[in-house]
């Protein structure tokens, strides 16, 4: 961890919804429900400017849904959030991106039948040639296109994709596509870059260079928010970590603070992961779990269990 981390987050209490000295993104009561399932219910969250923040949590915790909501790819059932002073709740995705809050996707979206270079060029914002009436007249956008191409080539070289420049993006490997998507997002010159599982499917040899790329983003003055399951990566590069479980923000802190947090361990492994329920009888197990037999209608459950066994399912309701 870099040295300045301690200074920026020194006064921040490691608790869910903690206030930060200079937040770039502030979300309040963001809620999203799919039928009866509350996918996201975040009461308050702040992301510190020019830091690398990780968003972790077990599968189904609502991390990606939260990402989708913040970037305008999904509509919330309620809530407000501001990015860099702009209120962006309910804003369409493309406007959010134009403000400088740009995301990548968990399932890479490389544009298969466009060349790598064209993928990159697409990323550049406010292009004159993207206007219908300017399109047919090359002299109107030629100069700008050259500048864009130059910038694209620089980024491709940085991400070691320069030898793939003229290939169709569909011909790249999974890891290269991840790199391409990140590089393409950088073409927009984002203030806040949101990476959804940047390490998924990337081979170990490539991982270290990807980590360096992300660190470099911070050095360039950008803010990074990423969702990741790879704990090594979280430990290595994140300045601050948010933990989500069942749609809620359950913990915050530095990676070191988080790894000792009982609630986080419970969320990942289940609250009673270290208890061997199989060694106890029913009553003891119920007590241990703090459950009430009457509440659960255990008789009914037992009955169901018998029925299941009767039908001949050897591992039944376990």
């Amino acid at each position: 961890m870099s040295v300045d981390t301690t200074s920026v987050f020194a006064g921040v209490t490691p608790e869910p919804g903690a206030a930060k000295p200079d937040p770039i993104l502030v979300a309040d009561s963001v809620r999203r429900q799919f039928g009866g399932l509350v996918a996201v219910d975040v009461i308050h969250a702040e992301i510190q400017r020019n830091q690398i923040t990780a968003l972790i949590g077990p599968n189904g915790a609502g991390k990606t849904t939260f990402f989708n909501l913040l970037t305008g790819f999904d509509e919330p059932d309620g809530g407000t959030w501001t990015f860099d002073g702009h209120s962006v709740g309910g804003t369409s995705a493309y406007k959010v991106a134009r403000l400088g809050m740009v995301r990548t996707f968990q399932l890479t979206k490389s544009l298969a039948r466009l060349s790598v270079l064209e993928n990159m060029r697409l990323g550049a914002g406010s292009q004159r040639g993207e206007r219908l009436f300017a399109g047919p007249f090359r002299w109107l956008w030629r100069g700008q296109e050259q500048d864009i191409t130059e910038r694209a080539d620089e980024l491709l070289a940085r991400f070691r994709l320069d030898q793939m420049r003229d290939e169709f993006a569909g011909n790249l490997s999974g890891g290269q596509r991840k790199l391409l998507e990140m590089a393409r997002a950088l073409m927009t010159d984002p203030t806040l870059i949101m990476l959804d599982e940047p390490m998924a499917g990337v081979n170990p040899a490539l991982k270290q260079s990807l980590l360096d790329h992300i660190k470099q983003l911070k050095d360039e003055g950008r803010t990074v928010l990423f969702v990741e399951h790879d704990m090594d990566m979280v430990h290595e590069i994140s300045d601050w970590v948010l933990v989500m479980a069942e749609g809620r923000l359950i913990a915050e802190g530095t990676a070191a603070q988080i790894s000792g947090n009982q609630q986080v361990i419970d969320a990942y492994l289940g609250a009673h992961h270290d208890v061997d329920l199989g060694a106890m009888d029913d009553q003891e197990a119920m007590e241990k779990l703090g459950l009430d037999a009457d509440d659960l209608g255990v008789e009914a459950l037992a009955h169901i269990g018998e029925t299941a066994r009767g039908v001949g399912e050897p591992e039944g309701s376990a």
Partner: peptide, 11 residues
């Protein structure tokens, strides 16, 4: 190819 990707790039 993928309209969400275009959207995510501000188009």
């Amino acid at each position: 190819e993928d309209e969400d990707a275009a959207r995510a790039l501000g188009k």
